[in-house]
Structure formats: C-alpha cells, structure tokens
Amino acid sequence: MVDDEKIVSEDMGVQVEKNENMEMRSFGTVKRWATKRSLWMVHYCTGCGGIELAPLMTSRYDMERFGMHPMVTPRQSDVLLITGYVNIKTLKRIIRTYEQMPDPKYVIAFGSCPINGGPYWDSYATINHLDKYIPIDLYIAGCMPRPQSIVRAFEDLMDMIQDGTADGYMRYKKYYEPYKANQEKIFRKWW
C-alpha cells in the first residue's frame, strides 16, 4: 500500500498531500474501477514492440474488450506503453509525452530492452535502464512479448490500479529532482 503518512518533503519542494493518491478521495473505489476498466493508451510506437500491439488492437486479440483504446494525444490517455528499445532522440519525446499526460498515468515497459538494454546493450544510441529517467509500473519479459504476455500485463496493471499499488506517477513527483537530474545529464539542450 502507498505509505499513509503525509509525504511532505521540504527539500523536494514538491508537496504531495495525503489526498493526492486516489484511495482517500470520495468514491475512490468507483473511480479506480472506472480507470481500470477504461485504460486509454497513447498512440505512440516508440520501438519495435509496437508491431505486437497491432494484432492486439485489431480483430484477432481485440484489446477493446478490456476497454482499452489507442488515443491520439497524451492529454486524453492514461497508459504510456514503451514498446522496446529507447533511442536518446525518442527518450526526449517520451519524457515530454509522459509529462503531458494528466494524472493518474501509468507506464508499461515491453520486452528486455528497457530492463537492461537487450540486444543493444553496447549501443551508443540507446539507453540501457529506462527507469533512471521515468518511473515504470510494469515490465514484460520477451524479445517482443507475445499478445498473451501483454494481456497478462494489462490484467496485472488493472489489479495494481484497483488496490492502489500502481503509483508510478506519485513516485515521479516524489523523486522529481533525481529524475530531472538524470534527464539533464542525457540532453545537452532541453528544447
């Protein structure tokens, strides 16, 4: 469970009150159930895993049965799927997309590349550990995970949302300074 004491950290400068997380607010369970049953994912194919999303979204495995729907802009979506390796150029756009998404937002990392670099572990253009830059809620094993694994990950994410342990976006606020410091080390000029 998310720790209940008031997360007020002066040095962070970001005040995360207790009612920030969803359980405490009114109708918490209903809202979490609604978020769980209608997760909208950003239409952003960051790496090679995006091709396994196509069969999921279309008639053969049909992700819409869980209420999941690819939305065009980060403003309208809840889940950001990092499908595979992350190039530095893409990382800048991923961070920007992640920060544009309204709360509560979740991140699922597909395949072995975001975990420890995958086949491109020694490439100058891709980063090895994605969770140094943005918080990640779930990892899926597989060098391009199968649709069954991805659906299993969606179910796990739904359970985590229901019992409130999917707190990636709160961790991003809590550890905002270290994340920003890491991101600055990668990009020379931010814009």
Binding site: R93, P119, Y120, A125
Partner: peptide, 10 residues
C-alpha cells in the same frame, strides 16, 4: 533518426 541503434557499429 528516432529508431537509430547503430546496427553497423554493433
């Protein structure tokens, strides 16, 4: 350039 992994170097 968003999917550049430097195949030829690897």
């Amino acid at each position: 350039g968003f999917l550049h992994r430097g195949f030829e170097k690897l």
